[in-house]
Amino acid sequence: MSRAKALTIAALSTLAATALQIPATAAGGTGGGSSADHWGVITRNTIGSPVAALREGPYGSFGVTGAAARPPFGTGSLGIEVADNSTSLTPPSEKVDFGNEVDFYGNPVLGLTQVGFRVFQTGENVSYGGDRNLPNIKFEINPNVAAHPGDTYSTLVWVPGPVTTTGRWSGYLDATTTGTWFLTGGETACTQAAPCTFAQVKASLNDGGAAPLIYTAAVGKGRDHLWTGAVDGLRINNNVYDFEANGVKVRRA
């Protein structure tokens, strides 16, 4: 291959990575969750026939103008639809997680410093389940709690605070300062019945023993109320995951 051709190929590769806004160290799928690959529905965490699909928009609703009338990043988002009474199970509601089972594996839970997203909420969703009827951010983790040495699995869940502005995109919902967190396995005092702040749930896992580790990261909904809407700009530490119809793009926060 000639030197000129090699330089041309290198330049095109650089332009492609820039267009996707993927850091050079992330293109291969490493770098602590900075890859644009490996995102999709986590099938083992899906119940019923819900929808979690990359889409264009949403734009609107009608009469809404300005920044709140379009996705906060690019032109697309992650559309989510779950039903509240569509299965023969108990409870009868659906559940879906859209996430990444590869790139966050082994990362320290206590290393989480920035988490959050933006959401398209509707008045109908509020009427179905209240102003906290919203998707969650979930991390499947190994809690490594000394009081439960044989317990190697739990889900760390963020429940957003109230979102009352509907028919448009919200501002950034900061999971480190708003809403509540809990662990599904009851490994600490931060349970679904008695949720904690972000600082409190991290402190509850920092018991001086082995560090708690992340398995996966996801945006999810269910099993509870009917909800139809969208999420965009999932932030995890220094990366913002921009959900677009043609894939997930990584932006530096």
Rank of each mutant, 00 (worst) to 15 (best):
V240M: 12
P149V: 13
A189C: 00
V201A: 04
P92E: 01
G99V: 03
H148L: 05
S154P: 02
D207S: 02
R70A: 00
I42N: 12
V102W: 11
A217F: 00
A203F: 07
R70E: 00
D207L: 05
P58C: 10
G57K: 02
G79P: 07
I137T: 00
N246V: 14
E81G: 06
T152K: 14
E56A: 13
V115T: 14
P71W: 14
V240A: 03
G129N: 08
A24R: 09
A230H: 09
L54K: 12
I22Y: 12
V159S: 11
T122Q: 13
Y105R: 02
L89F: 14
P212W: 10
G220L: 02
G106R: 13
A210Y: 01
G111V: 01
D207N: 03
E101S: 15
L213C: 05
Y128Q: 11
Y59L: 11
V51T: 09
Y153C: 01
P91I: 03
N107S: 10
Y105F: 14
L20H: 09
Y128K: 10
V201C: 05
T180C: 04
R3C: 07
A19S: 06
T43K: 06
T176D: 15
L226R: 11
L54N: 03
T87M: 05
L213A: 05
T166E: 02
K95C: 06
L20S: 09
Q114C: 05
S154Y: 15
G220M: 03
V240S: 01
Y215T: 06
H38A: 06
G66Q: 03
I214Y: 14
P23Q: 08
R132I: 07
G111R: 08
F139R: 06
V115Y: 00
V248G: 01
E244T: 05
A217V: 05
G76T: 05
D232Y: 15
A26H: 13
L78N: 02
D174Q: 10
I80N: 09
G150Q: 03
V231H: 06
N133R: 10
P149E: 07
